[in-house]
Design a protein around this nucleic acid. Sequence first.
DNA 1: TAGTACGTACAGTATAAACTGTACGTAATT
DNA 2: AATTACGTACAGTTTATACTGTACGTACTA
Lengths: 160, 160
Amino acid sequence: MKDSQLEEVMNKMIIEFSKTLELFGLTPLESRLFVYLYLTDDPLTLDEMSEALGKSKTSMSTSIRSLFDLNLVTRVWKKGVRKDLYEANSQLYKSFSTIYISKWLDSTNHHKDTLMEIRHEIDSPKKAAISKEKEKLNKKLDEIINFHVQIEGLFNNMKQ
Amino acid sequence: MKDSQLEEVMNKMIIEFSKTLELFGLTPLESRLFVYLYLTDDPLTLDEMSEALGKSKTSMSTSIRSLFDLNLVTRVWKKGVRKDLYEANSQLYKSFSTIYISKWLDSTNHHKDTLMEIRHEIDSPKKAAISKEKEKLNKKLDEIINFHVQIEGLFNNMKQ
DNA sequence: TAGTACGTACAGTATAAACTGTACGTAATT
DNA sequence: AATTACGTACAGTTTATACTGTACGTACTA
C-alpha cells in the first residue's frame, strides 16, 4: 500500500470520525483537529497542524485551546523544542462520555434550579390569590421541573 | 395574581425551558414554539402562534413541520374550523428521550458502517502489502470502530 | 365559477458562527 | 540589548443558519 493510499484512507477516517465527534458538541474544525491528532502518534505543533489541515494558525490556537479545556488533548514537553506540542488523549470513550454527561447534567441542573425559583416566586404569600389560570400554569411548571429531574436521572445512570 | 404577572411567569418559563430543549437539537424557535404550545391547553393555529411569538407565519409553518416530524406536536381536527390546529405532545420525557436516543443510534450506527467499509477496503487482498504505517492506522481504525460500538451500547442502555 | 382563505415554496435578507490576518506581549536566542 | 520566534487578542471577512415577504397552488365559500 502506497503512502498516497494511506493518506487517502486517513482522510476518509478523519471525515467520517469527525462527524461523530460533532455530535458531542465539537465544531467541525475541532473535530477534524482532534481526529488528526488522534491518528498521528507524534505530538504536533500549531504550525504542523495548520499545515496539515490547511487552516490558519489562529484557528489552530483557538481550537486546540477548546480541546485542551475539554481535556481532550494534552500539552507535551520535549527537550529542546520551543514550540508547544499537543497530542490527543487516547481514551476515547472515557473522555467523550465524561464530557458529554457532565455537559448535560450541568445544563439541566442549572435550568431546573431557575425553574424552581420561578416556582417559589409564584407561591410566595403576597401573591397568594388563587386563580384557575395560575393553577394550570403551576401544574405545567411542576411537570417541566419533573422532566428535568428525569433527564438528570437518565444521565446520572449513564455514569454507571 | 394579575394576568400580566401570569404572562410574565409564562414568559420566564418559555425562556428557561426552551434552553433545555435546545440541548435536544431543536432550534431556538422550535423550542420556544413547543414550550408555548405545551403551556397552552387549547390547540392553536399558525396565525395565533405567529401572533403570540411575534414571528412570521412562514417561520411557524416550517417550525411546526419540524416538530410534527419529530412527533412532538399533533394536528388536531375541530369541527367547523378550517385552519390547521396543533397541540404539544404532553409526554415530555418519553417524547424527548426517544427522539434523542434514536438520533444518536442512527448517526453512530451509520458512521460506524462507513468506517467498517474503510476497514475492509484496507484489508482487501490486492492491497495486502504490509507496512508499519498501515498497521498503525489499522489499529487506530479498530479503536475508533470500537468507540462507536461503545457509544451505541451507552445509548442502547438508555432505552432501558 | 369567482372569490377568499389557507399553508408553504422559494428567494432574498438579517443575524450568528466560523475562520483569517495583522499586530502585539512575552520569552528564548544571539 | 537587540533580534527572532512563539502564541493569542482582536477586528474584520467569509460562510452558514435563521428568519421574512411575496407569490402561488389548493381547497373551501358564496
